[in-house]
Amino acid sequence: MNDQAKQQALAAWYQLLRQPEIRMDSEEHYDELLKAADELERKGLISGSEWRVLLREAGAVFANSIAGLGGGS
C-alpha cells in the first residue's frame, strides 16, 4: 500500500465530507461518500476497519444534515 496515495485519497474523501459539491443534496452527498469509501477499499488503499470508520463518519454527517432539515419544522 502506497502511503502517499492513501494520504491523498483520504484527503480527497475528507474534502468531500466537509464540502459537498454544489447542488448536491444530503442523500446524494451520502451516496457519493459511500461510493468513494468503497472505491478506496476496493483499490486496497484502506483496510476494512478504515472503511467502517469512513462509513460511520459519512453516516454522522448525513444524520446531522437530515436533523438540520427537520429542525425548523
Rank of each mutant, 00 (worst) to 15 (best):
Y30R: 14
Y30W: 15
E39Y: 03
K35P: 04
D38C: 03
K43Q: 01
K35F: 11
E39Q: 08
L33H: 07
A36M: 12
I46G: 06
K35M: 09
L45A: 02
L55V: 15
E41N: 06
H29A: 12
L54Q: 08
W51L: 14
K35C: 09
G48M: 05
H29L: 10
E32P: 01
L33R: 08
E39M: 03
E50T: 03
L33Y: 07
E28R: 15
L34P: 05
E28I: 04
K35S: 13
L55R: 14
K43R: 01
R52C: 07
E27D: 12
G44S: 02
S49R: 14
A36V: 06
D38R: 09
H29W: 15
E41K: 09
E50M: 03
E28W: 10
G48I: 02
E27W: 10
G44C: 04
V53Y: 13
G44H: 02
G48Y: 03
R56W: 14
R52Y: 08
L45S: 00
S47E: 05
L55P: 03
L55E: 15
E39N: 05
D38F: 07
L40E: 05
E32F: 10
H29M: 10
Y30K: 12
E32T: 14
S47R: 05
L54E: 06
G48E: 09
D31F: 10
L40D: 05
H29P: 11
L55Y: 11
R56A: 14
L34Q: 13
L34C: 13
R52Q: 13
E39K: 07
E41W: 03
K43V: 00
A37K: 01
K43G: 00
V53N: 10
R52D: 10
E39V: 02
L33D: 06
L33F: 05
R42G: 01
E32L: 14
A36Q: 14
H29D: 12
I46D: 07
L34N: 13
S47G: 03
D31E: 11
L34E: 08
R56P: 05
L45F: 01
E39L: 06
E50R: 02
D38G: 06
R56C: 09
S49H: 11
R56K: 13
L34D: 06
G48A: 08
W51P: 02
K35Y: 10
E27A: 11
E39P: 00
E27C: 05
R52L: 13
K35L: 14
L55M: 12
G48C: 01
E41D: 04
R56F: 13
L40Q: 08
E32K: 15
D31P: 04
I46A: 07
E41F: 08
I46V: 15
R42M: 02
D31Y: 12
L55T: 11
Y30G: 08
G44P: 01
E32C: 10
R42N: 04
E27F: 14
K43P: 00
H29K: 10
G44Q: 01
L54T: 06
I46C: 07
L33Q: 07
I46L: 07
K35I: 12
Y30D: 08
D31V: 13
G44N: 02
G48F: 04
R56E: 15
D38S: 07
K43W: 00
Y30I: 07
Y30M: 11
G44T: 03
